[in-house]
Design a protein around this nucleic acid. Sequence first.
DNA 1: ACCTGAACACCGTTCAAGT
DNA 2: ACCTGAACACCGTTCAAGT
Lengths: 204, 204
Amino acid sequence: MQRSRPAPPSLPSRPTRTDARRNYDSLVAAADELFGERGTDVPLDDVVRRAGLGSGTLYRHFSSRDALMAAVFWGRIEALCKEADRLLLADSPVEGIVTWLRSLIGLTMRRGLAAALAADNKDGGSELFRYCRQALDTAATPLLRRAKEDGAFHPDLEVSDLITFTHAIAVAAERAPDSEEHADRLLRMLLDGLRTRDKPTARL
Amino acid sequence: MQRSRPAPPSLPSRPTRTDARRNYDSLVAAADELFGERGTDVPLDDVVRRAGLGSGTLYRHFSSRDALMAAVFWGRIEALCKEADRLLLADSPVEGIVTWLRSLIGLTMRRGLAAALAADNKDGGSELFRYCRQALDTAATPLLRRAKEDGAFHPDLEVSDLITFTHAIAVAAERAPDSEEHADRLLRMLLDGLRTRDKPTARL
DNA sequence: ACCTGAACACCGTTCAAGT
DNA sequence: ACCTGAACACCGTTCAAGT
């Protein structure tokens, strides 16, 4: 049950040499800051400049913008996957997965992460993002299965589709002033159905 | 009831001079082809080259890539808006809007249009895309209102959210081999709820 | 008025020289 | 081993010269 999760295919590992590791960390820290301030499409040159390094150093450690993004976000994604494991022990299967979906939205909303992960669907997406998606899918699978076994979710629902919808919520709520509440409202509607339940009083 | 829909704020109008109009049309045609073949992020230089023109001509007619995309897609979006008007006369309010949502997915799936419209949420989005979104919102509003009056949709549901979810479906189904069916399945689940209905047999 | 294409700017990426 | 920064490539955008 404690099987370790493998690292992404090409996630650059932290170097061992002291100066190299310091540079690596500076780059990740600078990128984290700038991604937050100005979005994940900030010029890499600015990341390099804030880290006080040469541009070649960035490419030594990160083969692409995606690799840098993965290094910045991977820690948080991993934490989210661990949370999924913990939530398997929740009293209510439904509460377990809903709590997790809220956490997912909390991570992806802002920062443009949701849009990046959602857009990654297309074949052109990078290997690293596909790996992030897959890690989230894998983590959520037992949560969803448990909820299905409880009869609480549509049997045809696939994890990847559930997460895709969740990304849509994050993207949509991102612009709203009360993004938290807006996201919650959308999540509730998504789970309960945009159509009202068939009640005796409603026709059809 | 026949109120005319205003043109987008900066949608470039077709020039009157014969040679200019021919160039304009060549650019739109070339862009339409290349967007279909290689995605909407194809280099503008290639569009210019296929049209057999100078690069300055493109910028004379289209102030940005978005303006070009708008010119390419605006006709189809307008047609979709008109379809919404027609569907207001459908026998069943629910069928009316569901049919329209299917058409919307049909337009946005492939071509990366769904991703572009969805990503446009963020403030950085262009004025033209915001206009496209708004045109779709405006067209769908009476359809949704009618369905709500019929008691078929959640009263809290906003048009923009419904369309956002629909974009998510288009993005998600785009990669699937059987995209049409996949999209249909997701749409059905979205409307009916990802959670199963509360049945006497299911607990909670 | 409109068109052309060379020139410019921006940014990602590489690589020779240096530590 | 790793770092630097100049050099290169790509692509969007402008503009002087031409019709």
